[in-house]
């Protein structure tokens, strides 16, 4: 359960962006959370709702896009979206896979009220 620490890092960025833009408040926040990010989106939402009170984002909505693990085989070139974490190519059984997506923990965009 390190979601609260992650939300604390999120708010550092949010407050910095709001200052830069001279915003009155933050209306919405959109995150991208990879399947292999080590974070549970549901807990992130709960932590966000606890943390946002008395901040510039006190009424903000949090949207989370869950990103599946996507890999590319370096031998046969196949691009595979995985629902497990087995790093073996399903087409040619190679173990040389490059991760294309699914490890991210990203603040994608925010909507502000100026």
């Amino acid at each position: 359960m390190h979601e609260l620490s992650i939300v604390a890092s999120l708010f550092e960025i949010l407050e910095e962006k709001a200052r830069e833009q001279k915003a009155q408040k933050i209306v919405s926040v959109k995150l991208k959370v990879g399947a292999l990010s080590g974070v549970v989106p549901e807990f992130l939402k709960t932590a966000f709702d606890i943390y946002k009170k008395d901040t510039i984002a006190s009424t903000a909505e949090l949207e989370i896009e869950e990103v599946p693990l996507k890999v590319q085989c370096q031998k046969c070139g196949a691009e595979i979206t995985k629902d497990d974490f087995i790093f073996i190519c399903e087409k040619c059984a190679s173990r040389e896979l490059k991760t294309l997506a699914g490890t991210e923990l990203l603040l994608e965009k925010i909507e502000l009220e100026l």
């Binding site: 992650i6 890092s9 962006k17 603040l107 994608e108 925010i110 909507e111 502000l112 100026l114």
Partner: peptide, 17 residues
């Protein structure tokens, strides 16, 4: 009230990194 959307694309654990 003017609303504005900004693209941030920052890693949440960027400062730790």
């Amino acid at each position: 009230m003017e609303k504005k959307e900004i693209l941030v694309l920052e890693e949440l654990l960027g400062s730790n990194k």
